[in-house]
Amino acid sequence: MDTSHLAEHAGAAGSFFASIFVVATLSMRTMIPLRVFAILTNIVLITTAIPIHNYPTLVLHTVLLPLNVYRLHQMLQLVRNVKKSVNSDLSMEWLKPFMTERRCKAGEVLFYKDEKAESMYYIVSGRYRLVESGIELPVGAIVGEFGMLSPSNVRTQTLECTADGLILSVSYDQVEQLYVQNPAFGFYFLRLVSARLFENIGRLEERLALETVKAPAAAPSPA
């Protein structure tokens, strides 16, 4: 059998296996296995395109292969970062690549209590205050994440900028897309938000206990 027949059979076999991978890719609901099968499809089609000199297919999948590898790496890195945050400092810096910048001026209100919640914010610089509770938010804080989990999706407090600064915002829709693409991300994200909720509850309990101690001391003694 000459080399032309070998190339022809190789091309046919490659097309067959590539078709299987394409069908498998279409059945995937989450991003990581989808990217894995896409990478396998790229490799098979590149390998079979070389002996039959199918240059359009070769060029196309040579370009798509590094793109799929990068996207797979990005999603795996995202899950690692969220998992690390859950097990360490509860930071949400891993969300930065998916957020957009917004500059704020002193006196500007970012959102009002009881309005519909559609995004969360990461504080980069400046000063911000939750009006109803009087809580000052430090640089590095995330605010607005609980609106995504509440049944009514409304803000529970008003957020005001008290000194010029910069924040990053991400929509709930984008976070939901990341969850759909990778359930592992969603699992760790829920754990992270829950941990932050309990942390906030602990802080409020400490403040309440402190105020309770101060109250008797401030009360006037009977004459």
Rank of each mutant, 00 (worst) to 15 (best):
L90P: 00
V59D: 03
Y55M: 12
S88H: 08
H53T: 14
K83V: 01
L78F: 00
H61G: 08
A49P: 07
H61P: 10
R102Q: 05
H53I: 14
V69K: 05
R103I: 00
K83N: 12
K105F: 05
M92T: 06
N87K: 14
Q77M: 15
S85N: 03
K84T: 09
L76A: 14
I50A: 07
Y70G: 03
H61D: 09
W94N: 03
A49L: 09
V79S: 05
S91W: 04
H61K: 11
E101G: 08
E93P: 05
R80G: 06
L60N: 09
S88V: 03
H73P: 01
L95C: 11
P51S: 09
N81W: 05
S88M: 10
V69M: 14
K83E: 10
K84D: 05
L65G: 03
Q74I: 03
V79I: 03
R71N: 14
V79R: 03
P56I: 06
T100A: 11
L67Q: 14
V86D: 00
T62H: 02
R71P: 04
A106S: 01
Y70V: 01
L76F: 12
L67W: 15
R80V: 06
F98D: 06
V82Q: 03
D89H: 11
L78D: 02
N87V: 04
L95D: 08
T100C: 11
Y70L: 08
W94R: 03
Q77T: 15
H61Q: 08
L64R: 10
M75D: 15
N87T: 11
R103A: 00
Q77H: 15
L64A: 09
V59H: 07
K105C: 06
N81L: 07
V63P: 01
Q74G: 05
R71E: 14
R102C: 03
Y70H: 05
I52N: 08
V69Q: 12
I52Y: 05
S91D: 10
S88D: 10
I52A: 12
E101P: 04
Q74V: 07
M99S: 00
K96Q: 09
K96C: 10
L95Q: 10
S85W: 02
R71H: 14
H53K: 15
L95M: 14
P66W: 07
N87R: 14
Q77W: 15
V59I: 08
